[in-house]
Simulated assay, not measured.
Amino acid sequence: MKTTGIFTDKADIYAKYRPSYPNEYIDYLFSASQLNHERIVADIGSGTGIFSRQLLERGLNVIGVEPNDEMRKMAEQSLKRYSRFRSIKATAEHTTVKGRSVDLVTVAQAFHWFDKKAFKIECQRILKQKAKVALVWNSRDLTNPIIKENAEICQKTCSNFKGFSGGIEETPEVFNRFFKDGKYEFKKYQNDVFFDYEGFVGRNLSASYAPKKNDEEYKRFVFLLSELFEKYSKNGKIVLQNITQSYLGGV
């Protein structure tokens, strides 16, 4: 499956409206992976650098691996003041990172796009002995009525919609196959996001499956989102119940 170009023309809105990850989660990663300022993290599918930035702010050395030119260049521009950041144009399955050189592999909001088997082999190649892989998503709380109605809008207007984050939350067997002996540590954090109207629409338009401006369903998509915002917003704001979910283990 060729996924490199999925986010082309979406780098700006992706960088602007996608949420970051809880500080509590970064603390956990440091503790569970025994990280310090000497450690090297490979952030695979690093996109516009949202997660890479949070790692860099904690003083880690970060290699951002991203195949999409627009997303990668935006990360390079916004993270250029960090001397510990290195950007590579490569895929998750062929990172070109030196073998046995990495203390932790992170994948934020991207694992569902990868060839899982090939990526696992690549992680085994680049990780130091006993080092781990952290897979993390900011996932919508599917029990929330706003999120349910948001999903219904996507089903009506987005032909490529297969569920948020590619429906990965509903397929736990993927993680059992990916991690060594099916063993991993699962962590969950509440990470609600507050949006004004522009932010709410922008967050939806940043999705891979969302129509672009020239697409037939674009106006209908935005109109239905406007109605949803009007229905649930208070004082010009809407709350999207968001859960950060992490899977950490050896491969």
Rank of each mutant, 00 (worst) to 15 (best):
L29H: 07
L29V: 06
S33I: 00
N36E: 13
N36Y: 07
H37F: 08
V41E: 01
A42S: 08
D43V: 00
S46W: 05
S46H: 13
G47V: 03
G47A: 06
T48D: 10
G49N: 03
G49Y: 06
G49L: 12
G49I: 07
I50E: 02
I50T: 12
R53G: 07
L56K: 02
E57D: 13
E57R: 07
G59D: 15
L60V: 06
G64E: 11
G64A: 11
N68K: 01
D69G: 09
K73C: 13
M74Q: 12
A75C: 05
S78G: 01
S78K: 11
L79F: 04
L79H: 06
K80S: 10
K80G: 03
Y82L: 01
S83T: 15
R84F: 13
S87H: 03
A90C: 03
H94D: 05
H94R: 15
T96H: 08
V97N: 06
V102G: 05
V102S: 04
D103K: 04
D103Y: 03
T106S: 14
V107S: 08
A108T: 02
Q109N: 15
F111C: 05
D115Y: 08
I121H: 15
I126T: 02
L127D: 01
K128Y: 06
W137I: 01
S139A: 15
L142K: 13
L142T: 09
T143I: 03
N144Y: 06
I146V: 08
I147Q: 08
K148A: 12
C154R: 11
